[in-house]
Simulated assay, not measured.
Amino acid sequence: MTDCGCDKAKESLEEYLHNELCKDDASDIREHIENCPECSGEHRVGLVLREAVQRACQEAAPEDLRDQVLARIRTIQAEHA
Rank of each mutant, 00 (worst) to 15 (best):
D7H: 12
P37V: 06
A81M: 11
D28T: 02
S27A: 12
R30L: 06
K10L: 10
G41A: 07
D3K: 14
R50I: 03
R74Q: 15
A61F: 14
R74P: 01
H80N: 07
R74V: 00
L65K: 07
E20P: 00
C57A: 13
I33F: 14
C6A: 13
H80I: 01
I76P: 00
I33L: 15
S27Q: 13
H80R: 05
K8W: 04
V69L: 01
G46D: 09
I29N: 03
E79H: 03
L17S: 08
K8T: 12
C22Y: 07
H18W: 12
P37N: 10
D24E: 10
G5V: 14
I76S: 00
E11Y: 10
A26H: 06
E38H: 14
I33G: 00
L49A: 10
I33V: 15
K23P: 03
R44W: 02
H18G: 11
I29T: 05
V48Y: 07
H43S: 12
G46R: 04
E20K: 15
L17P: 11
D64K: 06
S40P: 00
R55P: 00
D7A: 11
A56Q: 13
I73T: 01
D64S: 15
A9Y: 10
R72P: 00
R50A: 14
Q54A: 14
A60D: 08
A9M: 11
T75Y: 01
G5R: 07
I29R: 04
K8V: 15
E59T: 13
C6W: 05
Q77L: 11
V45D: 09
T75C: 01
Y16G: 00
E20Y: 03
A60V: 04
L49H: 06
L65D: 13
E63A: 12
N35D: 12
V53Q: 07
D67Q: 15
D3H: 07
L21D: 10
E15S: 09
H32V: 03
E63Q: 13
N19S: 11
V53K: 06
M1A: 11
G5I: 10
N35Y: 02
G46P: 05
R72M: 04
E38Y: 10
